[in-house]
């Protein structure tokens, strides 16, 4: 399962990381090197075991539907890069460059 340069570019896009042309070959090689060490896992028979996601097989503890949230010792504007009228402000998404009232809904990807 060799990782190609295209693969690395694809996953970098997914992870919102910009990689320079200079970094790509080296990262491709490193990822292949690391993943090469993982191939040993493919030969292990795991059919008999239940995959363990961690602890808590008895089930998760729930919280009651009340109570105050954990308070913020400082206001949102004190740690946010940009706010206006209480909103967090970000550059507009390319697909909404000509936003009008019709497009105002939040769409997931």
């Amino acid at each position: 399962m060799a990782v190609t340069r295209d693969d690395v570019e694809h996953i970098a896009r997914l992870a919102r990381l910009a990689l320079s042309d200079a970094e790509l070959p080296q990262l491709t090689e490193q990822l292949n090197g690391i993943l090469g060490h993982m191939d040993v896992l493919q030969r292990v028979d795991t059919r008999a075991v239940l995959p363990a996601a961690g602890v808590g097989d008895a089930g998760m503890r729930l919280r009651a539907d009340d109570g105050p949230p954990t308070p913020l010792a400082r206001g949102r504007a004190s740690f946010a890069p940009e706010t206006r009228d209480g909103f967090f402000i970000v550059p507009r998404l390319a697909t909404h460059e000509n936003a009008s009232a019709d497009d105002a809904g939040g769409a997931d990807e």
């Binding site: 909103f87 967090f88 402000i89 970000v90 550059p91 507009r92 998404l93 909404h96 497009d103």
Partner: peptide, 16 residues
């Protein structure tokens, strides 16, 4: 998810 408001301020998106 929260709300992205694209038409409130020019050129930017407001997040609530």
């Amino acid at each position: 998810a929260g709300k992205s408001i694209h038409d409130r301020y020019s050129g930017v998106t407001a997040i609530d």
